[in-house]
Design a protein around this nucleic acid. Structure first.
Length: 396
DNA sequence: CTAGGGTTAG
């Protein structure tokens, strides 16, 4: 934690700024460019430099400096520093600056596991009479989506509806579709989707994922086919329409594979996985492999799932082994369960529940010696310093 | 010489 608030001697004002003659290298713009430049390479340095400036009682900071610090806090998930910066924004009277409010909302959504703080900032803006714009609404909807807060999302949608020109903002509309998807109102999501005249890849992706999440695999895949057909049509037409192609990307394929997985469509899933690699030239990521493992495991194709995992060109993570472990439990395959279990231990990522899963299989099969052995191992393996908080990060 | 945004397995 980096403390800097208590070092602030007095609130910074624009009057004070104009009265002080800073050395050239300490002018706000100059410093801000440094703060900004560290943002991509080393965000912690942005925060350190800023706290250093305050410690030296150099008030050569302005709203730009704060913005970069807030972004740095968001990037490094430094919630304490983020909160301190928020306090500083208020202390310096920068509340009406919409850029700061929006990035604060974004910061809270990124650093706390309660995005409702982002909505609280939004509420406060409403109370202070600070008018939100498209970007503020976009971030607010994203926070609602993360929380699954349909009531708040609808409230914000209502506020947006009063500004017809906002419906031209595609980022905002995509955020709106995503909010309805994540909050479970698929019909409303479709309604918004249909009303977006010029869509992009993200629009389609949100809707495909939406259908997949709602167990509407056919709708998801039909949507994907529609997109492919539109692309084919356009590429066969004049050259002018080529740049209007909406080429499916890796994220969209996660939605497609999710749909196949939820519907148990194993052959289709394999076909899409191949198509992704061969036709679209997309290198599958861990999440794509995870979808495939999930698909195979759901159908009880455990051996195939296992050989699929072994053939992966990248190292499988704990989630993948846990998928296999869970499915082995459901389908009573104690050999593969034990393999998955040991892989989890190798990764140093086994959870209490993983031992229980294997233990239950042994019990169900009457393998009491194995169960006792496992129980013995479990009690021996208690390593100090491994709290449930640290382990909990695996779930996020 | 500088400001904020949307899609991602389980």
């Amino acid at each position: 934690m980096i403390r800097f608030l208590h070092k602030v001697a007095k609130p910074f004002t624009s009057v004070a700024q104009s009265q002080i003659n800073f050395p050239k290298h300490l002018k706000p713009t100059r410093i801000n460019l440094s703060l900004k430049s560290y943002l991509n390479s080393n965000p912690t340095k942005t925060i350190l430099l800023f706290s250093d400036l305050l410690r030296k009682k150099i008030s050569a900071v302005d709203s730009y400096s704060l913005l970069y610090v807030i972004k740095a806090c968001a990037k490094k998930s430094m919630d304490t520093e983020g909160k301190q910066t928020h306090t500083l924004v208020i202390k310096l009277g920068y509340e009406p600056i919409i850029f700061l409010q929006t990035s604060l909302m974004d910061m809270y959504a990124a650093t706390t596991n309660k995005p409702y703080r982002a909505i609280e900032v939004f509420r406060q803006m409403q109370m202070d009479g600070v008018e939100p714009d498209q970007v503020t609404f976009t971030v607010a909807l994203s926070a609602c989506a993360d929380m699954g807060a349909l009531d708040k999302g609808v409230w914000i949608h209502d506020l947006i509806s009063r500004k017809p020109e906002f419906s031209e903002d595609l980022s905002l509309m995509n955020s709106l579709v995503n909010m309805y998807v994540k909050c479970g109102d698929i019909r409303k999501a479709m309604l918004v989707f249909d009303n977006i005249r010029v869509k992009d890849v993200r629009t389609w992706t949100s809707m495909i994922v939406g259908h997949a999440l709602h167990g509407q695999a056919e709708e998801a895949l039909r949507l994907f086919s529609t997109l492919e057909e539109e692309n084919k049509l356009r590429s066969s037409q004049s050259r002018g329409t080529k740049d209007q192609l909406l080429v499916p990307n890796d994220v969209m394929f996660i939605g497609v594979l999710m749909a196949c997985s939820h519907a148990g469509m194993v052959e289709e899933g394999k076909r899409y996985f191949r198509s992704m690699i061969e036709e679209y030239g997309i290198k599958p990521r861990l999440s794509h492999f995870g979808c495939m493992v999930d698909l195979l495991c759901r159908l009880g194709l455990l051996k195939e799932a296992y050989s699929f995992i072994l053939a992966m060109p990248i190292q499988p993570n704990a989630v993948i082994w846990r998928t296999l472990l869970g499915a082995s439990g459901v389908h009573g395959n104690e050999e593969l369960a034990a393999v998955a279990q040991s892989k989890l231990r190798e990764l140093n990522a086994s959870l209490v529940g993983d031992d229980v899963a294997l233990s239950n299989i042994y019990a169900a099969k009457g393998m009491w010696e194995e169960k006792i052995m496992l129980r013995h191992e479990m009690t021996q393996r208690r390593t100090p310093g491994c709290s449930s908080v640290e382990v909990g990060k695996l779930h996020s």
